[in-house]
Nucleic acid binder design. Structure first.
Length: 855
RNA sequence: GCGAGAGUGGCGGAACUGGCAGACGCGCUGGACUUAGGAUCCAGUGGGUGAAAGCCCUUGGGGGUUCGACUCCCCCCUCUCGCACCA
């Protein structure tokens, strides 16, 4: 590699120091300026940053600095998602206290991030394991408790045997723990829940309103919430009416999205764990069969669940139920394909219109009734499409949609059921049987039961001295000083809750804390939050599509309903960046394809690392890391450096074309250079070059502004630099030296300005070298000069029958007829037209002519 | 199975509302400067054919719409991601 690289080490250290010493990126609320809240997902302090961090923070900094140059008041903070399992595991393995481990890691990572030269307002740094932070979420917990939004229940939960804790549904991916990839098992356990289901509809509705979010993420969230509209009604158990009347004594409540198919119900199914099963069994023998079936299902469920084409297993009960629609008595089963966790845990089975029921019916020899007329060419099994109702009593002849409504109306009229909406979304289980998390601020008193801690006693501080074994059970339970307390209500003896909160609770509101990070009077200062919120641009990995991003949306709505914030949604726009890949695989130690950002920055500098991260791929796509590509980035920056340093004398002698020392105007604290006056009497080379300069400004601005296409923005800057080199050569004897110097100056400054958000150090340095006293980031983003971009002539492609045969250079506004005539007369076109009849000529102004011929 | 997205040179990737396919970078080839260069600069670089001008082919495959298709429509293939018995 290069031996004469620009001195990036000194430059980067120098500017990082200057930005910090002058607190250049410190911001305060300023109602007179437009604000821009730019936020990247804060990191877990694992100890070292990785290339994924480099990428996301490079993207964020580009946007922040760009907006800064556009005159926005930019909030760009950084902090630490500091609670979590790895700290605890480190403690168990190496005997370091999680707090020490965490804070050391934070120091390391902060130092690493500083070397990237990102425009953070470090005065706003937030660390979630600090009691002054989690105090406020304890307070909110109590508020939620008061409103029934936090509650405790015993339930079957996801248990990670490796992490020794409960996981929320969102934290199980394909039956495995999201963090450690262990297979998740089931457990019945008491725990705390946040009632996210109360917001299911609102979360869903906003999915369509958050237009700044990627479609993909919104679809994932919609699917996760999983709203389905249908009906719920009772199937009376035959011979079990309460008092010999029609009113059902014992009945099975079922949920269906297809009430229109009720006449096709030929059996019904309960989940094996359904609580009613016990009261339905008639004798000891059946009880035994049921117990055996349940045991079998429980045993195999975990592995079987993942098996493809799993056979549906079921057991017929002696009890039968009555289909209220047609009074038919039908068999009742328990079967593994019905889940207790969804709907009512029981279904009406309509094999004619449901493939699962069809499979089961075939296996158990149950009748199949079609209730929707099949299309003429139908050859499938269960038919799930729309159509006209048949075999359905009073619904016959209706469309499926009408029949659904009528069936529900009928159920309501008969007082048998109602319309019902079900969600796949479950309440968020937030209890963790771990130490390194925020304590849940409640106590258990023998006399008063569960009692929230008094607000004035908050925060409930996580005790320092705790034995961590990793062997299971909440570690806090063994901390007698912590557990034993007094009841906030009666003053009697009480025990503290020993579970801690899911760390996703901290990340559900950190963006609010950044608005007023040291505020001691509450979670955040109202005025500050009202000024800064919502986040204008959020940037982070797709892996949080339904985790953090859903929780944060929910939590924000809770805070809104508690009267604390005004916004409905925390993040106006989301950019979800792709992974960093190398050699076709995600970087990992086991694959040996890890690139260490420290090494990278040491060898090439932060500017190069950032440049390549942004250049190699558009942000939403995976980035294929390539060491040679990085060298290309370094080469480009060297090229910029060499040009400026090598032409310093010439560049310094001249101010910009059009005006000497353009006056500065102030836009929101940023001094703007007004557009250049149009040039008069300059050489053709000079005009062409200046057009390239201003076209580049437009391209780069559009690429950033329109769709985050930073890779093409960088390509455009590279083209401009190439053009600078070319012009430098070409202009030597053809352009007057004053004009040449002025244009080179304008081009150079433009390059530095456009490159500034991407590579802030080298550009600051060269900007200063050119004689500027003030930081580049106190100068405005350049504005493309429309006059410079006008052209007199354009190249028009001439096609004959769709194939390019020639090119014409013509006046921009040449009349269509002239263009057509010139094209037909062209030497290279002639041979292709002669002997053939010209059928028509298509002229696309300023672009192309297509001559269509016929033999 | 359902849902979403993607298939373009040796590689990463460009191509706005249909209008010169392959920008920019990597790699490679040649040249210049050099004691030397793995530095730098210049030139070339989709495939085929040709001495050259040129011609033909080319955006996963096959149809279609159109003067014109990477772009729009239909069918198929492959890959990635998400959900996965959600009634």
């Amino acid at each position: 590699m290069s031996t004469d690289r620009y001195p990036f080490r000194e430059i980067e250290a120098k500017w990082q120091r200057i930005w910090e010493d002058t607190k250049q990126f410190r911001v305060t609320e300023d109602p007179s300026r437009p604000k821009f809240y730019c936020l990247e997902m804060f990191p877990y302090p694992s100890g070292r940053i990785h290339m994924g961090h480099v990428r996301v923070y490079a993207i964020g900094d580009l946007l922040a600095r760009y907006k800064w140059m556009r005159g926005f008041n930019v909030l760009h903070p950084m902090g630490w998602d500091a609670f979590g399992m790895p700290a605890e595991n480190a403690a168990i393995e190496h005997g370091v206290h999680p707090a020490i481990w965490t804070y050391e890691n934070i120091d390391n990572m902060r130092a690493q991030l500083r070397k990237m030269g990102i425009s953070y307002d470090w005065d706003r740094e937030v660390t979630t394991c600090d009691p002054s932070y989690y105090k406020w979420e304890q307070l909110i917990f109590i508020r939620m408790l008061e409103r029934g939004l936090a509650y405790r229940k015993r339930s079957t939960v996801n248990w990670c045997p490796s992490c020794q804790t409960v996981l929320a549904n969102e934290q199980v991916e394909g039956g495995r723990c999201w963090r450690c990839d262990s297979e998740v098992t089931k457990r019945d356990i008491d725990g705390w829940y946040f009632k996210i289901t109360a917001y299911a509809d609102e979360l869903l509705a906003w999915c369509d309103r958050l237009t700044g979010w990627p479609e993909r993420v919104m679809i994932m969230q919609k699917n996760w919430i999983g709203r389905s509209d249908g009906a719920e009604f009772d199937l009376p158990v035959a011979g079990r009416s309460a008092d010999g009347t029609d009113r059902p004594g014992l009945a099975i409540r079922v949920f269906t999205t297809r009430p229109d198919t009720a006449f096709g119900m030929t059996y019904a199914v309960l989940a094996p764990e359904h609580p009613l099963v016990d009261s339905l069994v008639t004798d000891a023998a059946e009880r035994e069969r049921v117990a055996a079936f349940r045991a079998e299902v429980a045993k195999e469920s975990e592995q079987e669940r993942l098996a493809e084409d799993r056979e549906k297993r079921g057991l017929r009960l002696s009890a039968t139920v009555v289909n209220p629609f047609n009074r038919a008595e039908i068999p009742l089963f328990i079967a593994d394909y019905v889940l207790m966790t969804y709907g009512t845990g029981a279904i009406m089975a309509v094999p004619g219109e449901d493939q699962r029921d069809w499979d089961f019916a075939k296996k158990h020899g149950l009748p199949i009734i079609e209730t929707v007329k099949r299309p003429p060419d139908w050859t499938g099994e269960a038919y799930t499409g729309d159509g006209v109702k048949i075999n359905s009593g009073f619904l016959d002849g209706l469309t499926t949609a009408d029949a659904k409504r009528q069936a529900i109306d009928w159920l309501v009229a008969q007082r048998l059921g109602t319309a019902k909406v079900n969600y796949r979304l479950r309440d968020w289980g937030i209890s963790r049987q771990r130490y390194w998390g925020a304590p849940i601020p409640v106590v258990y008193c023998d006399a008063c039961g569960m009692v929230p801690e008094k607000e004035e006693n908050l925060p409930v501080i996580l005790p320092r001295d705790v034995q961590l074994s990793g062997k299971g059970g909440s570690p806090l339970a063994a901390a007698a000083n912590f557990v034993n307390t007094t009841c906030p209500k009666c003053g009697g003896r009480a025990r503290r809750e020993t579970d801690t909160m899911d760390t996703f609770v901290e990340s559900s509101w950190y963006f609010l804390r950044y608005c007023s990070p040291t505020y001691a009077g509450g979670m955040f200062e109202r005025a500050a939050a009202e000024y800064w919120m919502p986040v204008d641009q959020y940037i982070g990995g797709i892996e949080h599509a339904v985790l953090h991003l859903l929780y944060a949306r929910f939590y924000t709505k809770v805070l809104r309903d508690l009267g604390l914030v005004k916004v409905d949604e925390p993040f106006n726009a989301l950019l979800s960046q792709g992974m960093v890949i190398k050699d076709g695989a995600k970087m990992s130690k086991s694959k040996g394809n890890v690139v260490d950002p420290d090494d990278l920055i040491r060898t090439f500098g932060a500017d190069t690392a950032r440049l390549f991260s942004l250049f190699a791929a558009p942000p939403e796509k995976d980035l294929d890391w390539n060491d040679h590509g990085v060298e290309g980035g370094a080469r480009f920056l060297n090229r910029v450096w060499r040009f400026v340093v090598g032409h310093l004398e010439e560049l310094r002698t001249q101010s910009r074309v059009g005006s000497h020392h353009p006056p500065s105007i102030e836009i929101g604290g940023v001094s703007a250079t007004p557009p250049m006056a149009p040039l008069s009497a300059v050489s053709p080379e000079g005009r062409a070059f200046r057009r390239v300069i201003h076209e580049t400004i437009k391209r780069v601005t559009d690429d950033i502004e329109r769709d985050f296409h930073f890779n093409t923005a960088i390509a455009a800057i590279m083209e401009l630099v190439n053009a600078v080199y070319a012009f430098e050569q070409a202009s030597l004897d053809r352009v007057a030296s004053a004009e040449r110097a002025a244009l080179l100056r304008e081009a150079t400054e433009t390059v530095l300005q456009l490159l500034a958000p991407i590579c802030p150090h080298i550009t600051e340095e060269l900007w200063q070298t050119l004689g500027h006293r003030e930081s580049l980031f106190r100068h405005a983003w350049p504005v493309a000069d429309a006059a410079a971009m006008t052209r007199d002539e354009v190249t028009v492609v001439v096609q004959v029958d769709g194939k390019v045969r020639s090119r014409l250079t013509i006046e921009v506004n040449a009349p269509q007829a002239d263009v057509e005539r010139l094209a037909l007369a062209d030497d290279k076109v002639q041979p292709w037209v002669s002997g053939r009849a010209v059928e028509k000529v298509v002229v696309v102004p300023r672009r192309l002519v297509n001559i269509v011929t016929r033999a």
